[in-house]
Computed example of a mutant assay.
Amino acid sequence: MKQALLILLLAASTAMAAESGKIYTWTDAQGVVHYSDKPHPGAKETNVALSQQYDMPKADPNILKQAPKAAEQTRWSITILSPADEATLRENDGEMSVSVQTQPAMLPGQRVQLFMDGKPVGAARTVSSFVIRDVERGEHSIKVQLIDRSNQIIAESEPHTIYMHRASIFSPSRQPAGGGG
């Protein structure tokens, strides 16, 4: 215990004395060696080499400026995965599933807005798939937009042209059973 205390005192004294370069040592009546940076009656002065000094580089004050938010730095993209551009959908009920992908993945608060023929389809949603019902026969254009928390458009897909084929009510395959003629 005494040795540990002595080493600790020596280390502390050395650290304090490193600045002045002088340390004083003496032994008391009980034989305990003392160290100090201040003179004491009967103490011997010992010169200690100054510790190495290291000057810290000047801090760059620009690091304190607010960095742009991650969303502002990110280049967002949104793509329609399906249906493919120029696809022909044969769906008698007129149902179309649309699947989209964002790069990188959407963050909380971001939404996807689907457009068909230039008009929004429902409200913007936080999911990446949509189902549109009762799509009329013929040619349609779809696109999607990625919208951030502040309702700003941060990405827009290329439009896809889709052809919906639905059976006609006048088609022979749609006649009621037993009809004919």
Results as ranks from 00 to 15, higher is better:
Asp93Gly: 02
Glu91Met: 09
Lys119Glu: 11
Ile80Arg: 11
Lys38Ser: 09
Leu146Thr: 04
Asp148Asn: 15
Val131Cys: 01
Leu10Phe: 11
Asn62Phe: 04
Ala124Gln: 11
Glu136Ser: 15
Gln73Tyr: 02
Ala177Asp: 06
Pro120Trp: 08
Gln101Pro: 01
Arg125Pro: 00
Leu8Met: 15
Met116Ile: 08
Arg90Lys: 14
Ile147Val: 15
Trp26Arg: 04
Ser128Lys: 13
His34Thr: 03
Lys44Val: 06
Ile80Asn: 07
Arg133Asp: 11
Gly138Asp: 12
Ser20Ala: 10
Asp134Val: 00
Asn62Met: 07
Ser157Arg: 07
Ala18Arg: 10
Thr126Trp: 03
Gln30Tyr: 02
Asp37Gly: 03
Lys119Trp: 05
Gln103Leu: 06
Gly109His: 05
Ile80Cys: 11
Pro108Ala: 03
Lys22His: 11
Glu91Asp: 14
Asn62Leu: 06
Ser36Tyr: 12
Thr88Asn: 04
Asp148Ile: 11
Arg133Trp: 06
Ile23Met: 13
Val131Asn: 08
Ile7Gln: 14
Gln101Leu: 09
Phe130Asp: 06
Thr79Ala: 08
Ile142Ala: 04
Arg149Ala: 15
Ala167Trp: 00
Ser168Glu: 09
Ser97Gly: 03
Ala87Phe: 02
Gly118Thr: 07
Asn92Gly: 07
Ser168Gly: 13
Lys65Trp: 00
Tyr35Gln: 02
Ser20Asp: 13
Gln101Asp: 11
Val121Cys: 07
Gln110His: 06
Ser51Glu: 09
Arg133Gly: 05
Val98Cys: 08
Met16His: 04
Val33Lys: 12
Glu72Lys: 07
Ser171Ile: 02
Gln152Met: 13
Asp117Thr: 03
Asp134Ser: 13
Ala15Lys: 07
Leu114Lys: 04
Gly178Lys: 07
Thr27Tyr: 09
Ser82Asn: 10
Gly179Glu: 09
Pro61His: 01
Ser97Trp: 03
Thr27Arg: 14
Gln175Cys: 01
Glu136Ala: 15
Asn47Met: 15
Gln113Trp: 02
Trp26Thr: 03
Glu139Met: 14
Gln52Phe: 06
Ser150Lys: 14
Gln110Asp: 08
Ala87Asn: 04
Gly118Leu: 01
Met96Lys: 00
Arg166Leu: 10
Thr102Lys: 00
Phe130Ser: 04
Tyr24Glu: 04
Lys22Gln: 11
Pro83Lys: 14
Arg174Leu: 04
Leu64Asn: 12
Glu156Asp: 14
Gln110Trp: 02
Thr27Pro: 01
Ala12Asn: 12
Ile78Val: 15
Met96Arg: 03
Leu146Cys: 06
Phe115Tyr: 15
Gly42Val: 00
Ser99Ala: 08
Ala67Cys: 01
Ser99Met: 08
Glu91Phe: 02
